[in-house]
């Protein structure tokens, strides 16, 4: 126990310097990183180049990057989601409609996104199934999204609708024209996870991945990314510091982005079966 206290002290000492000695911190972290007093969260943020080595700049840096992430949420999820409800009628115009075969059609982009979202959704629902954490509600959901007055189309709702749609197609193929209400009902039940106004931790991870993929279209989503971001998000969202918890989403996004810059080649589909990617 005395040993542990000394170690904790060493960490705290290193993290409170004006300029952190990266080498020394790496050495310390190499043999384990205490989770107490935000040590683990802060070490990870520094080592993933999210926090600068100059501790005085932490506050400004965090503020800037958290705001930038929130702007992405606004542009990629909130704005498109609101438009759909506001312009319900004008959206389906002669120029653009859901069956428009033009690759530039906003609808075809919407459907492509949905396909990607379905894959992310499947992987996030069963993220770290041995932890109940990801199934539980986060105390810090995305306020704009869970506030039902605004009627923004959440990712969850998008997935539900897409799932129902694909079931209809299946039925047509097998030639059954009567809708199987029981089956439909079950699907809806499966997807009602939490009460209105609540958001599970896995949904937050899903949103991070969705935004990451929208911003990195050349890379795309590859299964396994969920396993990379899972521990990062868990560490920040279960930190003892409420500020760290509250911004776990944005912080995880940036840490994940930085980590991916190092291990990107393993996640590029084009590189599968080459020396650089997976499968060689």
């Amino acid at each position: 126990m005395a040993n542990y206290r000394t170690r904790l002290y060493q960490f705290e000492n290193e993290l409170s310097r004006d300029i952190i000695d990266n080498k020394r911190l790496r050495k310390l972290v190499f043999s384990g990183c205490p989770s107490e007093k935000s040590v683990r969260s802060n070490c990870w943020k520094v080592l993933l180049n999210y926090l600068p080595l100059e501790t005085k700049e932490w506050e400004e840096s965090l503020d800037r990057q958290r705001k930038a992430y929130h702007q992405f949420v606004e542009e990629m999820i909130l704005k498109p989601g609101t438009k759909k409800y506001d312009n319900n009628r004008t959206d389906v115009t002669l120029e653009d409609h859901p069956l428009n075969p033009n690759p530039d059609s906003q609808w075809s982009q919407f459907f492509r996104d949905n396909e990607m979202l379905l894959q992310i959704d499947k992987d996030c629902r069963r993220l770290c199934p041995d932890l109940s954490f990801f199934q539980s509600a986060t105390p810090y959901p995305c306020k704009e999204l869970v506030n039902s007055d605004l009627m923004i189309e959440t990712l969850r709702r998008r997935v539900e609708q897409t799932v129902l749609k694909s079931q209809n197609v299946c039925k047509n193929r097998s030639g059954i024209t009567i809708t199987d209400f029981k089956k439909n009902k079950k699907t809806i039940d499966d997807y009602v996870v939490l009460a209105e106004g609540e958001e599970a931790h896995w949904e937050v991870v899903e949103r991070i991945l969705f935004i990451y993929v929208k911003l990195n279209p050349g890379q795309g989503y590859v299964q396994g990314m969920n396993e990379i971001i899972g521990p990062i998000y868990y560490t920040f969202a279960s930190d003892s510091n409420p500020d760290c918890q509250a911004h776990a989403e944005a912080d995880s996004f940036w840490c994940f982005t930085n980590l991916m810059s190092e291990i990107r080649d393993n996640f590029i589909k084009h590189l599968d079966d080459t020396v650089c990617g997976i499968g060689e």
Partner: peptide, 26 residues
């Protein structure tokens, strides 16, 4: 279209008789 984030392209070229693969981030 306006590029959002980062796109990807690749092509093979030959230099000095050697095949070189270019992996390009746009």
């Amino acid at each position: 279209d306006l590029t959002i984030g980062v796109e990807f392209g690749a092509r093979m070229i030959t230099i000095d008789g050697k095949q070189i693969k270019l992996q390009i981030w746009d």
